[in-house]
């Protein structure tokens, strides 16, 4: 994956979380994912299908982290993973996807709109739609970490 694609994810994720939940997440050093398992307990996954580049990205939140984020978003205390949390993770995934696609468009890459899916449960797996290395960008908050997983590759030419 082109390293230039990493910054739009870091910037957009921080913007979305700070604007919606008034939390400033601290981005850590990106690294390559080694297995299928998600870093968190609730994850949103969305396709990024473009003309030249295609792939997907996911955001995976630890339970304490997403409870705090959604409590702030809705201005009410949420003490379990409920429908509000699943909806909010879908919405956050969608917003990050929109922001990242707008930034990638400025770099000359157009992507189509897509619909996110949300997965929850302890030690669930995330399967990206294309093969190729998955880059993880860890973020920390005072209520625990969350992780962005990005997998973007050049499209294989048709035979």
């Amino acid at each position: 994956m082109n390293v230039e694609f990493i910054n739009p994810f870091i910037k957009t994720t921080a913007e979305v979380i700070s604007t919606m939940a008034f939390i400033e997440p601290a981005a850590g050093k990106p690294y390559r994912k080694k297995d299928q398992s998600a870093g968190g307990d609730v994850s949103g996954l969305i396709g990024l299908v473009g003309e030249k580049i295609t792939g997907s990205f996911a955001i995976s939140f630890t339970e304490s982290c997403i409870r705090k984020i959604v409590s702030n978003m809705l201005e009410e205390e949420i003490d379990e993973v409920n429908q509000d949390i699943l909806d909010a993770v879908g919405e956050i995934t969608n917003m990050i996807s929109g922001g990242v696609r707008a930034k990638l468009q400025e770099m000359g890459h157009n992507f189509k709109m897509a619909t996110p899916s949300v997965i929850s449960g302890k030690s669930h797996a995330i399967s990206h739609i294309t093969e190729g290395p998955v880059i993880i960008i860890p973020f920390d908050t005072e209520k625990g970490p969350f992780f962005i997983e990005a997998c973007l590759n050049e499209k294989k030419k048709d035979k």
Binding site: N94, M95, G98, G99, R101, A102, Q105, N110, M113
Partner: peptide, 26 residues
């Protein structure tokens, strides 16, 4: 909407939208 790509904004304006706000917003 979360769609901030130019062609989306143009499409909405053509269809007669009065204004457009990109998520996330304050």
């Amino acid at each position: 909407t979360a769609e901030a790509q130019k062609e989306n904004i143009v499409e909405a304006v053509k269809a007669g939208v009065n204004n457009y706000v990109v998520k996330p917003f304050t």
